[in-house]
């Protein structure tokens, strides 16, 4: 067994197989909760525990997969560039709403994590929960969060956002397609965008535009919004 697992390729093959299984299960069940990534993570974790394999052993190969995240974030500039024309038509209202949404996201996380009495590290891990994963991971590292907690909170945010979207749109009585798209992309990143895709072209274009912009904005505002909200709550208490 050691000869099999103590090989760089082991972690890569295990991840590829788990993701394949995740895609298959997601396709068969068509349930949002069976998100391919979530299923794949679950399968790898269960496999490592069941076979009593050390996470360090898995990470020999895992780090090669992880390495692609940096360049993948850079590549996000391409879809953003393609959508710049759509942004130009309503640049000010769109950018203002995304900025507002990003501030609300960070502030509400600080508020609820403090309300629930969670530790500093956990607050930092949840701050980037509404932004796309490659940006969220880096922001979490920068702010002193725990990266795996960030990754899971981002996935849960995306899945729950996609599931809640129809109800939220109805309750908030949102009608404007651009507004709906921006709301989905800003609050639930790429997984929310899959829901926008079902709603229509305007919604999905605006949603995917919002992913990148919200990500960049959150990186810049998160430290300030955190300190401001934290300070306000501290004095209020």
């Amino acid at each position: 067994m050691e000869y099999l697992t103590d090989n760089l390729v082991f972690g890569i093959v295990l991840s590829l197989a788990a993701f394949e299984a995740g895609l298959w299960i997601s396709k068969k069940t068509k349930l949002a909760i069976f998100n391919p990534l979530l299923v794949a993570i679950f399968i790898v974790v269960v496999f490592l525990i069941a076979a009593d394999i050390d996470i360090e052993t898995y990470n020999q190969g895992g780090q090669f997969i992880h390495m692609f995240l940096g360049p993948a974030t850079v590549a996000l500039a391409v879809p953003l560039y393609k959508k710049l024309d759509q942004l130009k038509q309503h640049a000010v209202p769109i950018l203002t709403s995304i900025l507002f949404g990003s501030v609300v996201s960070v502030a509400s996380v600080v508020f609820f994590t403090m309300l629930f009495g969670l530790e500093h590290e956990i607050i930092m891990s949840l701050l980037p929960k509404s932004v796309t994963t490659p940006i969220g991971i880096e922001l979490s590292k920068q702010m002193g969060g725990i990266v795996p907690v960030t990754v899971l909170s981002i996935i849960i945010t995306g899945i729950s956002g996609a599931m809640m979207a129809p109800a939220v749109i109805k309750l908030a009585k949102l009608k404007n397609k651009i507004a709906i798209g921006i709301a989905l992309g800003t609050s639930a990143h790429a997984i929310g965008t899959t829901k926008a895709l079902e709603m229509g072209e305007t919604e999905s274009a605006m949603s995917s535009l919002a992913i990148g912009i919200a990500g960049i904005m959150t990186v810049f505002i998160a430290p300030w919004v955190y300190q401001l909200t934290y300070g306000l709550l501290f004095f209020w208490q």
Binding site: S15, L16, I41, V45, H66
Partner: peptide, 19 residues
């Protein structure tokens, strides 16, 4: 890179094991 973006997050998520 973007078509396979979700796959690249697996190791980061598996890190949950250690914490």
């Amino acid at each position: 890179l973007l078509d396979h973006l979700a796959f690249f997050f697996i190791p980061a998520g598996v890190g949950i094991l250690s914490i």
